[in-house]
Amino acid sequence: MLAIQTRGLTRRFDGRHGVTDLALEVPAGSVYGFLGPNGAGKTTTIRLLLALLREEAGEIRLFGEPLSWTRRAPLSEVGSMVETPSLYPHLSGRDNLEVTRLLLDGETASIDEALALVGLTADAERRVREYSLGMRQRLGIALALMRRPRLLVLDEPTNGLDPAGIVELRALLLRLAGERGITIFLSSHLLSEVEQIASHVGVLHQGQLLFQGTQESLRRRHGDPLAIRCGDARAVCDSLAHLGEQPQLLDEGTVSVPAPRRADHEINRCLIERGHAIHAFGRRPHSLETLFFELTGQEART
C-alpha cells in the first residue's frame, strides 16, 4: 500500500524550476526523507501534495485516493507542517489547537492528546510568543496531529532548531512512526538527520527525481568504497594505480578506492606482496551525504 503516489506530476514556474514528471512512491508506514538542494522543488512538491498549488499535469494519490486542487477529500488523512509552523503567537498553545479543532470538527479530547504526544501539556496555557523555537516546532506538529492523520507531511521540520531540539524532534517522529504507524514524509537539508530517521529516501534535483528507495538500496546501487589505512598512503596510491585501480588519497595514512575493479582480497594480497604496511583494510559504508552529492553532481562547499 502506498501512502503517496504521484505520476507525471508537473508544476513549473516562470523563470525557476518547479517539478517535472515526478513519480513518487511512498510506502505506508515508512519514514521517507525527501532530499534535494535549495530550489530543487521540494517545497513545490509538498505544496502540491497538500493541494496548496495547482498541478499542471499528472496525478496524485494519497492512500489510493486521487487528490487535486479541486478534489481535497484525501487531505483528511494528512497532517502537515510547511516550513515554519503556522501559529498565532498572541494565543495560547491550547487556543491554537482549539482553532484547528473547530475547523476540523474534532473532539475536545484530541487537544489534550496532541499536547501530551508532543510534551506540551504543562505549557498549554502559555502564549505561543513565549515559546522557544523547539516548543513552537512541537506545537506545529501537534497541530498536524489534530486530525489523527495516517500521513504526516513535514517540510524542513528541523529548520532553526538547536541540536537538543533536533534530537527531541527526531525522538518524537520516531515515536509517531513506531508506535502509531504514521507514515512520515519529510524534507530536510540535514542529511545526517535523514540518515538516522528515514527508512526510504528520495533525491530531487532541478525538479526531477534522481533516486527513490530504501537507504540500503541506495548504498547497494553505489557500492561501498574500499578504505585502506596504511603507513605510506602515497606509495599505496602509486601501487594501486599501477594495478589499474583509481585510488583517492584521503590523508597521509588513508587511501580510498571508490569502485575497485579487482576483488578485495586480491588487492590486499598485491599490496602486501609489494611490501606495504597495511593497518586496516575494508569497506567503509557511504554516508548519505556522500551519496547525495554523487547523485546531484554537487560538491560540498568547504
Binding site: A51, V82, S86, Y88, L104
Partner: peptide
C-alpha cells in the same frame, strides 16, 4: 503564513 495551514485542511 497561516494560509498554508488553513488551506491544507479538509
Amino acid at each position: 503564513h497561516q494560509w498554508k495551514h488553513l488551506l491544507a485542511l479538509p
